[in-house]
């Protein structure tokens, strides 16, 4: 922040980051988002908040990694975060699929057992 003379885009960035952070907070509180998945979102929210609030930070960071145009460095980092998040989602979906398969098989086999049991009961005339 340079002498309170903040750009509109940075204000927008701060507002956006706060929206993310607050949304995540409320979603977890209402049990619509698992704590496990909230962590990565909170980190992204915090990162964008810090980056928008302190504009010099972005400049020095991009200089550090040798990017002449600071916003590019910012986008690169965000895209990298998005990739990680997507990978995380794919892992979660794979887990869900495996559980789903096991449950489907178990349910099919249990239905068969139930059927056999019903037949036996019927035969016994109970």
């Amino acid at each position: 922040m340079v002498g309170g003379n903040i750009d509109k885009i940075h204000l927008l960035g701060i507002a956006f980051s706060l929206t993310i952070l607050l949304s995540v907070f409320f979603l977890v509180r209402e049990r619509m988002l698992k704590e496990k998945y909230s962590l990565v979102w909170l980190l992204i929210g915090l990162f964008t908040l810090v980056m928008s609030a302190f504009e010099n930070l972005m400049d020095s960071f991009s200089e550090l990694i040798g990017v002449s145009y600071p916003p590019s460095a910012f986008f690169a980092i965000l895209i990298a975060c998005a990739y990680l998040l997507l990978l995380n989602m794919s892992v979660s979906i794979s887990g869900l699929k495996a559980h789903n398969k096991a449950l489907t098989q178990e349910l099919g086999l249990t239905k068969l057992r139930l059927e056999e049991l019903e037949k036996k009961i019927e035969k016994a005339g109970l």
Partner: peptide, 9 residues
Amino acid sequence: KVVDLPCNL
């Protein structure tokens, strides 16, 4: 014996 799976696996 027939197992009817509830979803297509």
